[in-house]
Design a protein around this nucleic acid. Sequence first.
DNA 1: AAAAATGATGCAAACGGTTGCTTGATTTGA
DNA 2: TCAAATCAAGCAACCGTTTGCATCATTTTT
Lengths: 341, 341
Amino acid sequence: MEKKLPTIKEIAQRLNISVSTVSRALHDHPSIGLRTKMQVKKLAEELHYVPNQTAIFFKQRKTYTIGVILPNLREEFFSLATSGIEDKAFENNYIALMGQSHDSIDREKTLVETMQKHRVDGLLVSISKNTSNVDHFQSLLQFNIPVVFFDRVPDVPNIHSVWCSLYHSSMEAIDFLIKKGHKRIGYIQGPDTLSIKNERLQGYLNGLKKNKIVHDPSLVVSSDFSAEGTQKAMDQLLALKNKPTAIITFNDYVALDAMQYVRKKKLKINKDLAFVSYANLPITHYLETPPLASVEQFPYDQGARAAELLFKLIDQKESSESHPFENVVLNSELVIIGQGK
Amino acid sequence: MEKKLPTIKEIAQRLNISVSTVSRALHDHPSIGLRTKMQVKKLAEELHYVPNQTAIFFKQRKTYTIGVILPNLREEFFSLATSGIEDKAFENNYIALMGQSHDSIDREKTLVETMQKHRVDGLLVSISKNTSNVDHFQSLLQFNIPVVFFDRVPDVPNIHSVWCSLYHSSMEAIDFLIKKGHKRIGYIQGPDTLSIKNERLQGYLNGLKKNKIVHDPSLVVSSDFSAEGTQKAMDQLLALKNKPTAIITFNDYVALDAMQYVRKKKLKINKDLAFVSYANLPITHYLETPPLASVEQFPYDQGARAAELLFKLIDQKESSESHPFENVVLNSELVIIGQGK
DNA sequence: AAAAATGATGCAAACGGTTGCTTGATTTGA
DNA sequence: TCAAATCAAGCAACCGTTTGCATCATTTTT
């Protein structure tokens, strides 16, 4: 059954010429006569010859393949980033291998090994929530395979990275809320296992300081991102004698859960309690009462920029240029959505 | 710079033995002496030897790679399907190459060629909106590379496919609305270029017939899925002398646009005008006034099932078994979300 | 003690394509 | 007319790994 695919060898035999001639003919090498070229191309066409890339990859030591490892594709943020990566890859004649770590460090390790086995020319990674060191990427570096981290960037020196700074937008968010008259602003953050820079909180704190508001630690609570975790966080905030009038949430998903919970409590969103969050997912614009504002992190662009950087590194490697560590920082943007009171 | 990677040849030279011995030692072949085995393994470890998979792929004529081609990753439906595919691939020790057609038939063709060049062991495809024939998949079949279509399945015979039938749920949706007292039910469909089965409309029509309601063609309008297109469609429906009291929309995105438009018109959603749609995206559950119901199409499962079928076909091919065309049909489910009046 | 079985290792071909070097034939130049 | 230049094509090595088939040295069997 297993139909053997045509090879240049077969073409050579049929035409009674050597394989090298066939190879050169197919590549329009100048030293091959026109007649021979035509014959070869015609037969190749007839046999539906397709060069065996695995042989070529093997010989050229290059696969035109990059690996992409990220926590998951269910979150819109990552699927948009992937979309950007794929678009850039397509433009550059590369193709991307996908892997989801599902925030498991073991699975992340396995994926790195698999990608390495497949001899990817480079790797794009958004690390799992539980990844605290980057040892499992070391062997890639030994192989001289470039790695670019994006969005979830490990907090270690000497890496290439692309991420979106939330610091300024976080401060802007505070300014925005204070201009609206809010003085007690709560913040629901994530679990503190994330070993990445906590720019949201830094911006929050400095925004308060800048506006001469004393920081009240009881206004900062944590959620594990589950609906229940967020509800608990909300309970903490609403139990305060001096309740917040506005709340900043780690991301839109947390905001959605929080807002739904608040609705159940018969509080008016953006009237009794204002919301600002991160991500600016398209869906928030469809809500009857959306958060007042959300910080856009440009996932598509992050993916695209990370891919561009990776291709640059691959090219540099091939021309044995030096490549200092590069860290691209995009700026987030505070997008005003709702009207509020 | 380009550091040469260690090979079994190098190990062989250093230990003054043959490459075949090294190869066998690393594979724990019984005919290799214990001492030699130990020596080889120790040295391999020291050199950080990693077998060159491109050489092995080449020799074995198998890459443990599958291709995935779908319209785009921005739509949650497809990113969830991809998530299912990747999970199954990981389980089966495969890895997936991603490609987005962006509903361009040319890009789809290019992707098919690229995947073929990369010698994928199989291909999963959700065809582009503009794909009306499947000629560009023919060469894969000649190569005996299995192809499984999912969700957006071309309407041609002799293919493998996985899709989710909307027929029964569409009828159920009608039953559901009629039980709620609705008699005039509108339907916003998509552009009619889609060459796939139109089960939504079939279910709509048969649902009406079953409930002995005469079909009024002016209640069926089209949208190109843009916000403007949907608004125009709504205008058509609301301009009727005998207006609908309920509307079924092609998908949740259309429903969201329609509902937002209706809100602007100061109509009460699910009171003046009830909505039912398709997709059951997580977000609809966060709306203050969600559609009454949405048809869940199980994108993750579709992806997972399609991947499973593909792996089965690959295995069968390897054991030269016969493989009749298989068409897996999942059932959609009408999920009741809101309360309505 | 000679024949047979066993154990440990090496040889070489194969997978498909690329490419530097050679060779032979034809054309060009003086 | 003969050497040099040009053209067209072939030879063979190479990329890294696997594997059927020798080969040779022991050990076991009778």
